[in-house]
């Protein structure tokens, strides 16, 4: 891993240098102090902020809320298909470790069995620039998932502040290409040890292997019903979650022209599994919430050996009814097979 010591001006210049070829996205403070998503900007004029975690997660760039997969045109009995256009190269700045970690999950899923070109192409076309997080709040639990909020190698480049300057770490071949192409007079530093906030004291620890063990035999636990009592079955947690990836496929057409889309779907919605005949294998709210938890902390581990959660805390922060996944997992890990009553 190569590391450069750069001044603020140099960092800004490095990202502005490519503005012609890349769309530049930064998390910026809007007037009400809330950042919904990275916003496109023509030029970077000040340092990338390190304290902003946008509400919408990074998955939006590779797996958008809804995207056309192909277009079609009908003419009498004939059909003509059009392929989706290639994506524009993008440079996304100020990504936190949790979001970078979540991409591994999506990558594993989308390349499994058959490679999903829609996802891969966008990922290949995007340079992700991480930044050492200075915004850990009450809802964050990345360290529980062994994600270091101060440093991550899951993106392409990573910025760590050092005194008045910044260390720019090159964490992928794509990042290296970028730096070679656009960095002028960069001074490399040897012996950079990234900061690490893992192992800092937490109020409770989540033991994920233990949780999985409980889940392995815990399909019928009474706690699922208890967890679901609060839940209102909206899609906030799934839509904002950087690792949630379930989608729906549908057509939208006007007269002869149309397109087939895919868009986020949520296992929290009853329509998610309702079949045309009316039968719904997950008609109960508790069953849907259980599906979400099991998918993240058990099925995904079974299938990909990865936990489909990066501890970004969005589902906790934005839940309208304060469902806290950490508390629920904590109950699970202490519940064993007989469950627990309140």
């Amino acid at each position: 891993m190569k590391n450069y010591l750069l001044t603020e001006e140099q960092i800004i210049a490095l990202f502005n240098a490519a503005a012609e070829h890349y769309e530049l996205y930064v998390p910026v403070n809007s007037e009400n102090g809330q950042v919904f998503c990275w916003e496109k900007t023509a030029r970077l004029d000040k340092m990338v902020p390190s304290n902003i975690q946008p509400t919408a997660s990074i998955k939006k760039f590779f797996f958008p809320n809804s995207e056309p997969m192909f277009g079609f045109k009908k003419e009498k009995q004939e059909i003509e298909l059009y392929q989706a256009a290639a994506s524009v190269p993008r440079l996304v700045l100020g990504v936190h470790s949790c979001d970078l970690g979540s991409i591994k999950v999506l990558e594993a899923l989308f390349k499994d069995t058959v490679d999903d070109e829609l996802f891969r192409e966008k990922r290949q076309n995007t340079v992700l620039v991480g930044i050492s997080c200075s915004a850990k709040d009450w809802a964050c639990f990345c360290s529980q998932l062994e994600i270091n909020s101060r440093f991550s190698q899951d993106g392409d480049l990573f910025i760590t502040p050092r005194e008045e300057k910044y260390i720019l770490s090159v964490t992928s071949a794509k990042g290296e290409d970028y730096v070679n192409k656009y960095l002028e007079n960069g001074e490399t530093v040897a012996g950079f040890t990234p900061a690490n906030d893992l192992g800092e004291e937490e109020t409770f620890t989540l033991d994920f292997p233990k949780i999985k063990e409980v889940m392995d035999s815990g399909f019928e636990l009474p706690v699922w019903e208890k967890f679901a009592r609060k839940c209102i079955n909206c899609g906030i947690c799934t839509f904002l979650c950087p690792t949630c990836h379930c989608f729906d496929v549908f057509d939208e057409a006007r007269r002869e022209r149309g397109a087939r889309f895919r868009c986020y779907d949520s296992c929290m919605f009853p329509e998610f599994t309702r079949m045309a005949g009316g039968y719904n294998p997950r008609s109960a709210k508790a069953a849907r919430l259980r599906q979400r938890y099991l998918h993240k902390y058990k099925y995904f581990v079974d299938n990909f050996n990865l936990i489909a959660c990066s501890g970004c805390g969005r589902c906790i922060r934005h839940c309208p009814v304060n469902v806290d996944v950490r508390q629920n997992l904590n109950i699970l890990q202490h519940s064993g097979s007989e469950g627990e009553d309140d």
Binding site: L109, F110, D112, T113, V114, D116, H245, C246, F247, D248, V249, R262, D265, C267, F272, T273, R274, M275, A276, P281, H295
Partner: peptide
């Protein structure tokens, strides 16, 4: 049989 969308193990239902 289940409700299916992608047929490829990705859409998650």
């Amino acid at each position: 049989e289940m409700k299916m969308k992608c047929g490829l193990g990705k859409c998650g239902r």
